[in-house]
Design a protein around this nucleic acid. Structure first.
Lengths: 188, 188
DNA sequence: TCCTCCGTTCAGAACGTACTGAACGTAGCG
DNA sequence: CGCTACGTTCAGTACGTTCTGAACGGAGGA
């Protein structure tokens, strides 16, 4: 693992575990984490491989998964025929979108059951309706401009920070960080 | 698999795949799906095992996971010393909550990197800020009464349905179902 | 044309982990 | 006291999946 400092490796490692925790692969997190902090922001396959100390094979495979997931993009670099990749801004929002898209089969299942289970089982139908409502609700919440709200929030926060970021930095964040609880855990 | 009709098995099976798809286990989905449509709505371990055709061992283990995840609750049944479980209403919202709670380590990673990577790498800091903002944004979105909006939506929809549910049923839903696209997929 | 430097692909190894069957502990009931 | 009916626990198996090393193909440059 040459070409990456201790802090950088630590961060990439954390991201690796984070992605794995979320159901992705360690390698995805490792690469995504590295692309978040590397300099320059675009990197070739071999650069990543040596920086992270993993095989080119993994990088090659996984970086294309990330590309297909719209979280990373290939960029042209003047006078180089290597494949250079960098983070796509908006990648995080993309994660949200994809996660919501995954709810489809659940909604379908609810529809299916409601179409086939008759009114002679009102209690079951009631539970199915709650399930169905949930999916519609989430779709609505996300569809109706969550992306838009995010963009707005992004811009606002960015502006606010512009005035502060060069001031002496201290580790203070919203209370949200402290309030985060390690709750028990249903399906990931 | 005695004691469950073809439709019921089909639904439970779909839920099993759905849960697995989301990162949970097949067994969790199977049980949760069954508890959604079974009659009566509370079931003992052995009842579930025979109805679903799986081992009691699995049911025993997984049903307790579901209980700890607040998606299922144990209920007393008059004159029976068996362990009876049933769906907890609000289980779906619980899934949301738990998923958001899982974002903690990601936010921590961003904090960590921002605390250790200096202003000599403004581009990296910019990307880290986007990441950090994302987590704060999501926390805010969910904290600020998403659960409340859900409850409200629940009640409203339920009332609306009360007038319609007994009318001849047809497979028509909001266009949302049709619009659902099988998007490409970042970490689950 | 050969050589070098890329990225890609494939078979395989190493690793988890979900689920089962069997043994066990326990509580009522005859 | 056995006996039955129930849930729990544990070792083992079967399975998928991630990651690697080695072989490969292709595009310049000398």
């Amino acid at each position: 693992m040459s070409g990456s400092s201790a802090v950088e490796r630590e961060f990439a490692g954390r991201m690796a575990l984070f992605f794995e925790y979320l159901g992705g692969t360690r390698m995805m997190g490792l690469i995504y984490g590295w692309l978040t902090i590397c300099d320059p922001e675009h990197q070739s396959i071999t650069e990543m491989a040596t920086a992270l100390g993993v095989s080119k094979a993994s990088i090659s495979t996984v970086v294309r998964q990330l590309e297909q997931a719209q979280m990373v993009e290939r960029v042209p670099v003047a006078g180089s025929r290597q494949h250079h990749y960098q983070l796509r801004s908006g990648g995080w929002a993309q994660i949200l979108r994809a996660r919501v898209a995954r709810l489809g089969p659940g909604a379908d299942a609810a529809d299916y059951a409601l179409a086939h289970i008759g009114p002679d089982k009102p209690s079951a139908r009631e539970r199915l309706h709650e399930m169905q409502d949930f999916f519609v609700f989430v779709e609505t919440e996300y569809g109706d401009g969550l992306a838009h709200r995010w963009e707005e929030y992004r811009k606002r926060t960015r502006d606010e920070r512009a005035a502060v970021d060069r001031a002496p930095r201290g580790r203070m964040r919203s209370t949200a960080a402290a309030a985060r609880k390690t709750d028990s855990d249903p399906p990931r």
